[in-house]
């Protein structure tokens, strides 16, 4: 995966709560299994008219957001089905970071496994970002968002930070530690733990 250090980009504001994975990538595209090419189907029903022409009133279709790498959205983003295609579609469209107050659990994990930084911020910070959607910078090393002179820090689990900074594959990384894990487990097993 491409390492994630700093990104500077205009923010795409998707002012909706509880955006579910059926909206992010509708069911008809779940049959496709290559991990690329899903970007064209992202938010399909919101993005296109019935004849396939882009809807003028949908934020992703505004030309100024064409190269946006950061999606701003509201709470419980990614709820619903576990389809990893949702993360694939967002990445393929060009998003490397998503900022919200909360994410659905499975989706949140799927983001990091695919090199997307999902950032949880407070309601107040989110509101400020929605009010000024100019260019912002996300610095993962320092864990800060810089927005028009305002700097906000964010939390991230060290494991995910390392994976993103170095562009590592999560599976490959964890498998490196198999020997240590086995040793640890043998030790645990020998301590005769019983939970009834």
């Amino acid at each position: 995966m491409e390492p994630f250090t700093k990104i500077k980009s205009i923010v795409t504001p998707l002012d909706k709560v509880n955006v579910d994975t059926d909206q992010i990538i509708p069911k008809q595209f779940l049959k496709l299994i290559q991990k690329t090419g899903f970007g064209q189907y992202l938010f399909y029903d919101w993005r296109y008219e019935k004849d396939g022409t882009p809807r003028k009133d949908f934020v992703l279709n505004e030309s100024r957001y064409k190269d946006s790498k950061i999606l701003l959205t509201r709470n419980n983003f990614g709820c619903g089905s576990s389809r990893e295609h949702a993360a694939w579609a967002l990445l393929d469209f060009g998003f490397r970071a998503i900022i919200s107050t909360s994410f659905a659990d499975i989706f949140y994990n799927n983001c990091f496994k695919n090199g997307i930084l999902a950032i949880k911020v407070s309601e107040e910070t989110l509101q400020k970002l929605f009010e000024n959607t100019s260019e912002i910078e996300i610095d993962l090393e320092k864990q800060i968002i810089s927005n028009d002179g305002t700097i906000t820090s964010f939390e991230i689990e060290p494991h995910w930070k390392k994976i993103l900074l170095e562009g590592l594959d999560d599976i490959a990384v964890t498998l490196q530690y198999n020997d240590e894990i086995s040793k640890y487990e043998n030790k645990q097993r020998n301590s005769k733990i019983r939970v009834s």
Binding site: S82, N110, I171
Partner: peptide, 25 residues
């Protein structure tokens, strides 16, 4: 690899859904 994996928790198991990468892992 499905969000409704939770269902089977009714039998007294810990049952949770995962994404594709996690299932592969």
């Amino acid at each position: 690899g499905d969000s409704h994996t939770n269902t089977t928790g009714a039998l007294g198991a810990f049952a949770a859904g995962l994404g594709h990468t996690d299932v592969a892992y």
